[in-house]
């Protein structure tokens, strides 16, 4: 069964999700990656009129072009590797009231703890699936920090419809990434004849 989730999401909706759940997300979605995380970490404020309350932050640096009518169009928009934001994400979840983060590759114990404490989940989108995911972006509503951060690093506000992802870290302390890490570590040690 695929869960349908619309932003802004409530804590109750997020707490109902478990590792392994397939989810389709609709509504507003904000991108934010390395430059944005550093900016927020250093005390930077959200742009005027923007709230992340109940929102989902997408680790993504899209390819965006202007079409013939001068409208922004996201032509490729898969996730970027999330672990680089591990030093910053917990603080950003707490400070802005995020209910979800989308990325790839998973995150570490600090983010997992913040998910448990504040009611947030990590959604894994399929890395490299830039076309399948861009197709679910119905509209580019706005862009912030385009000049300062450059196009891939800017905060893009998308409107998405049934954007597919899998919960790999939930708000109950479970992480698929931690599980695969431990299982593969044991397999490696067996393959190399090393002590566990």
């Amino acid at each position: 069964m695929t869960h349908q989730l619309t932003t802004p999401a409530s804590e109750e909706q997020i707490r109902a999700l478990r590792v392994g759940d397939a989810v389709e997300i609709s509504g507003a979605l904000f991108t934010g990656r390395d430059a944005a995380h550093k900016y927020f970490h250093q005390g930077g404020a959200l742009p005027p009129g923007v709230s992340f309350e109940g929102m989902i932050l997408y680790h993504c640096g899209p390819v965006v072009i202007r079409d013939e009518r001068g409208e922004w169009k996201a032509v490729a928009a898969g996730p970027t590797t999330s672990i680089r934001e591990e030093p910053y994400e917990a603080e950003i979840i707490r400070r802005f009231g995020l209910r979800g983060v989308i990325g790839k590759g998973g995150m570490g114990p600090r983010t997992l703890k913040a998910c448990r404490e504040h009611g947030c989940v990590y959604f894994h989108a399929i890395g490299g699936a830039a076309q399948v995911l861009a197709e679910r972006i119905r509209k580019v509503r706005n862009v912030y920090f385009l000049e300062e951060f450059g196009s891939p690093e800017a905060i893009w506000e998308f409107e998405v419809e049934r954007f597919p992802a899998v919960v790999t870290m939930d708000s109950h302390g479970h992480s698929l990434h931690a599980k695969v890490l431990e299982e593969s570590r044991a397999a490696l040690q067996r393959a190399l004849g090393l002590e566990g």
Partner: peptide
């Protein structure tokens, strides 16, 4: 979910070719 990931990858490859757009946004 591993099988589903590969299905999405297959679909993505086909779409990128058809639309002449990047397979992955990180070019």
């Amino acid at each position: 979910v591993a099988e589903e990931a590969l299905r999405i990858i297959e679909r993505n490859i086909e779409m990128a070719r058809r639309k002449s757009q990047p397979i992955c946004q990180d070019t």
